[in-house]
Amino acid sequence: MNDILNFNTIKEYNTFNNNKTLHPLVSVVHLYKAEPRKLKRLRYGFYTIFLKQIFCGDLRYGLSNYDYEEGTLIFLAPNQVIGQSENNYYQPQGIALVFHHDLIAGTSLGKNIGNYHFFSYAVNEALHLSEQERKIIQDCFSKIEYELQHAIDKHSKQLIISNIELFLNYCTRFYDRQFITRDNVNKGILERFELLMNNYFLSDKPQNIGLPSVAWCAEELHLSANYFGDLIKKETGLSAQEYIQSKVINIAKERIFENNKSISEIAYELGFKYPQHFTRLFKQKTGIPPIQFRNLN
Rank of each mutant, 00 (worst) to 15 (best):
V29A: 01
V123D: 02
F293P: 02
I288D: 03
A77T: 04
N259I: 11
H277Q: 09
I136S: 11
Q93I: 09
T279S: 11
F257Y: 11
R41A: 09
A126I: 04
T72D: 12
D3E: 15
S246M: 07
P212S: 03
G83T: 03
D67Q: 13
E145Q: 10
G237L: 06
T279G: 04
N186K: 06
P275R: 05
I137V: 15
E70I: 06
F141H: 01
N186S: 12
H30G: 04
Y116H: 12
N297T: 09
N124W: 06
E12H: 06
K261H: 10
Q178S: 10
L25Q: 14
I161V: 05
S64L: 11
F174Q: 02
I232V: 13
A225D: 09
E269G: 05
N199G: 15
H23E: 04
F193H: 05
E265S: 14
K33R: 13
W216S: 09
L63Q: 14
V123M: 09
L159A: 06
G83I: 02
N88H: 14
K154C: 08
A240Y: 03
P212L: 09
H100M: 05
K157N: 10
Y66S: 12
G210N: 06
L39D: 10
G237H: 06
G106R: 08
S203D: 11
R177E: 13
N65R: 11
G287F: 04
S213R: 07
